[in-house]
Computed example of a mutant assay.
Amino acid sequence: MGDVKKVLFVCLGNICRSPIAEAVFLHLIKQRGVSEQWEVDSAALGGWHVGSLPDRRARQTLAKHSVDYDNTARQIHPNDFVEYDYIFGMDLNNISALNSEAKDVKNSKAKILLLGDSDPQGERIIRDPYYDDDSKGFEQCYQQCMRCCNAFLDQNQ
């Protein structure tokens, strides 16, 4: 058995997109029987929601698809750039902020990638559904994370 690969999903507040991506990834590696090969987490660029559960609509969307999730929000730490193999941002602003932070970290090894670059349907940006009036945006986020995480896993197994 090879080394464990470490994946971190990052969005602005770690209550919508990145916890959905984390939950989906965890669900998929469990389904594939490869959980022991991966370490998975998510984080925020900002500290507004540290310690909070994901947005209620994100939790409802995951529950609707029978995807378990019990993590709480945390803010990204400089050590994450050393510890993780892959750090996925959800949009170009996330990527810009992550690249900026990584420059200040000695021995940074993480590959900073846009999660949407793995989308077989070509939707590169995972739009933030936080300000949506309903759960439609969360469902769209879930479906896109499912496509992207599946494609990434297909390429990295």
Rank of each mutant, 00 (worst) to 15 (best):
A151P: 03
N14M: 00
A97C: 09
P120K: 03
Q143K: 10
L8V: 07
G51V: 06
S100A: 10
G33D: 05
L8W: 01
L114R: 00
D132A: 12
T61P: 01
R124F: 05
V40R: 01
Q37Y: 11
E123L: 13
L113G: 04
C149F: 06
D91P: 07
T72I: 15
L8I: 07
F88A: 05
V82G: 07
S52E: 15
E139M: 07
V7M: 02
G122Y: 04
H65K: 14
L62C: 09
L62I: 10
G46T: 15
N79G: 13
Y69W: 13
T61Q: 08
A63P: 09
D104M: 14
C16A: 09
L114M: 08
Q144G: 04
P120L: 00
S52C: 14
Q143T: 02
G116L: 08
I29V: 15
N79L: 15
S108L: 03
A151Y: 00
Y84F: 14
P19R: 06
P129E: 01
Q60I: 13
Q140D: 14
S100T: 11
D104T: 11
A73S: 14
Y84L: 06
C16D: 07
S18C: 08
C11L: 03
A58W: 01
T61A: 09
Q157R: 04
S135W: 02
R147K: 02
S42V: 11
P54I: 05
N93K: 10
V82I: 15
A110L: 02
H49R: 07
L28A: 09
H27R: 12
E22V: 08
K111V: 11
D91Q: 06
L8C: 07
W48T: 07
V105M: 12
V4F: 00
D133L: 15
S135M: 14
T61E: 09
D68L: 15
A58G: 05
R57A: 05
S52N: 15
K111G: 03
K64V: 13
I112G: 01
S52W: 12
C149I: 00
N150K: 10
L26F: 11
R57N: 06
E22C: 09
R124D: 07
D70F: 12
D3A: 15
E83H: 13
Q37F: 12
R124H: 10
D41R: 12
C148R: 00
R124A: 10
G122L: 02
N99E: 15
I76K: 06
F138R: 01
H77P: 02
V105I: 13
K106Q: 12
S100M: 10
A23W: 02
G116A: 06
A58S: 13
M90R: 03
A44S: 13
G46I: 15
A58F: 05
S118C: 11
A110N: 02
